[in-house]
């Protein structure tokens, strides 16, 4: 467990340092503009965000495993909270992040056009990024519909049952 967290932390540090170096170079080197460094920076940034998300998942999984020793009500509350966090991430944060990546890509193409370079094969790069973004989004939406939501609904049903929503008044 500690080893896993250390590996993730090392990946995070490497990714962050790489991204920072790319930003510094983009600012200092006139030849290394945002337009021609966009894909490198986008991939590095996406990698950093994925590792961060992975770290959150690992820590949450550890917390959930330790939580089974608590009473059932508290246990369910924690699991439901985690799943709701997943739903929120996939429905809100993921589209914002992916939309941001696409927007930066468009801006990088605009920089080239305004710089007088005109239309070039850099658009193919942006189309590939667009396809990648769609595939990632489709994968996570599938996961939301097939895994996350059914599990959340099932656990909420058990919590309602535990709360006694199904009890008739004369049972109490």
């Amino acid at each position: 467990m500690i080893g896993g967290i250390l590996v993730l932390a090392a990946m995070l540090l490497t990714g962050t340092l790489t991204f920072w170096q790319q930003v510094e170079r983009a600012l200092a080197d006139n030849a290394y503009t945002f337009a021609n460094s966009y894909l490198d920076m986008a991939v590095t940034l996406a990698g950093v965000l994925m590792v961060l998300r992975g770290l959150v998942y690992v820590l949450r999984m550890q917390r959930e495993l330790r939580n089974f020793k608590d009473d059932t009500w508290s246990c369910l509350e924690l699991l439901i909270h985690g799943l709701r966090d997943d739903v929120r991430s996939i429905r809100r944060h993921l589209p914002i992040m992916l939309g941001g990546l696409l927007l930066l890509g468009l801006l990088s193409r605009l920089q080239l056009i305004l710089g007088g370079v005109g239309f070039n094969d850099g658009w193919a790069e942006l189309i590939l990024v667009g396809i990648g973004v769609l595939m990632v989004y489709a994968f996570f939406r599938y996961r939301l519909q097939v895994h996350v939501r059914p599990r959340l609904e099932a656990l909420e049903a058990v919590r309602r049952e535990l709360a006694g929503d199904s009890l008739k008044p004369d049972d109490l």
Binding site: N67, F68, K69, D70, D71, T72, C75, L76, L79, V146, H147, P150, R151, A154, L155, V158
Partner: peptide, 15 residues
């Protein structure tokens, strides 16, 4: 019992 029940209650299979 507490651990086993909590694990079992929260275990959801794809229908």
């Amino acid at each position: 019992y507490r651990i086993a029940l909590n694990r079992a209650i929260s275990w959801v299979r794809r229908e």
